[in-house]
Design a protein around this nucleic acid. Structure first.
Lengths: 122, 122
DNA sequence: CGACTGATTCGACGTTCATCGAAGCATAAC
DNA sequence: GTTATGCTTCGATGAACGTCGAATCAGTCG
């Protein structure tokens, strides 16, 4: 195990496609059960200040060593690792191990997908 | 009290402006503490399937009677009201009472703000 | 007025979550 | 090999969350 996908959790196979909440130009039906659950999972993963900060760091640097997060979010290494795992589990970030260090980067398609799910102007 | 703002919680005064996670075209600094907390509050409000469904209904209908949510999300009236309150508290939806019924609608600027906070391509 | 209906709050419950210290696992350097 | 360092997992604990029934509040209609 060396790159990107090393989490045992359920990352949906259609990892870059997420349901759109408002299909305002098509049939006015509500989002499905599974779609709502999947979407909620993504939002929940972003629903913590520590994880927002992590995403912010990643978006501004496009690659960050795991060792750098702990100081920035002011949490212990264990807690930091926990937050990183949650972001990994929903596919928002990916890891690459180089020697002793682990580097994190955002998965742009995945973030774009969750952003697009919020689209409502057409 | 008849329209829109009737929640005792802390809706930030700059209700339509939310921090952007990635200021990739400006100084590469991380998001501030308060900004991260505020943003996380919004994401957390969206981090439940029932609330995602509620938002979906609102975006596809632009006005929904409170009495219609309960059946769609398959929860009791009490639970539904709880979820609606959470969405109100972060300013994502607004209410208008007409007679016995309460109508909910999305606050577009607020939703756009949270969506824009996820912007990272420039 | 009283009875009814829709919506919200209250109180309680079980579950999930954030947090940390300690233990475990790798990899690098000696 | 041993030691040291970075990262993750484990176990525990206290707080927050989702859920519902019951009670309450706010309108409407006889």
């Amino acid at each position: 195990m060396s790159t990107t996908t090393d989490s045992p959790e359920q990352i949906p196979s259609h990892a870059t496609e997420l349901p759109v909440i408002a299909a305002c130009c098509t049939t006015p039906s509500s989002v499905s059960d599974t779609a709502a659950t999947e979407l909620a999972r993504m939002f929940k993963a972003l629903g913590d200040p520590a994880r927002v900060k992590i995403m912010s760091m990643l978006l501004n640097a496009d690659e960050v060593c795991a060792c750098d997060f702990s100081a920035s979010i002011e949490k212990t290494a264990a807690t930091t690792s926990h937050h990183l795992k949650l972001l990994r589990d929903v596919g928002l970030v990916a890891t690459e191990k180089r020697g002793t260090w682990v580097y994190y980067r955002v998965v742009p398609e995945r973030l774009a997908a969750v952003r697009d799910a919020l689209a409502f102007t057409c």
